[in-house]
Amino acid sequence: MAYRGDFLIGTFLRFLPVLTTVLLWTAVYVGKTDGDTIAGFDLHQMIAYLLLIHISRMFSSMPGLAGGIARDIRDGSLKKYLVQPLDMIGYLLAYRVAHKTAYIVTSALPYALLFFLAREHFGSWGGWQAMPAYALSLLFAFLIGFFFEAMIGLAGFWLLEVTSIIWIITTLNYFISGQMFPLDVLREHYPVVHAILGWLPFKYIAYFPAMVFLGKISGPQLLRELLIETAWVVMLILLTRWLYSAGLRRYSAFGG
């Protein structure tokens, strides 16, 4: 609060992309010549979906995680974890949980305001019975986001330069996790892409929680998706552990 002017401008600017996205989709639905829905979404559901993506990303985005791990490996400061009775992945996970909690608490108010202003778009949602599954899907979104990023960072044991991989993945992620539009939109015109993205874990970090909230995935399908997601989480955890121990065996702690 020491920089109030700065804070106000920053908050205002941060809402601009939300505004322009809503305007773009409104114009799309107004200009449509064939029916009122796109891939089963009417305008309200589409806007609700795009707003819910922000909540998903609040849990699953991990800025700086992969880059930080890769840097620690490269410049040798990784040994600060090795000389202490401390597991690096466990430490980073605890750190992220704390950081995310603080972040979510501080941004709860602006988001509450945003969702209040946009309340007319939430006419149809999953209802309270969908909320336990929604909470679980957000928790899993966090875990998948964390362990996937950690895995990329650990690739730094073998590769000298991972920042470019991070760039590519961040860019791709925007599309393949369903942040631009619900992945269902692809089904009609790009069925192959749609099928592939359905099998990848990225949809769980943005698309899936929003769909659960809207009640578009429910019943047996929800159960199946949650099971697959659990399998992904377990697999990513195991893979990260394995990469970490395999990496430590090659690691020679240069520099200091």
Binding site: A27, V28, G31, K32, T33, D34
Partner: peptide, 9 residues
Amino acid sequence: RSMGGGTVA
């Protein structure tokens, strides 16, 4: 494509 040949604004 999802707009069926309409226009955006």
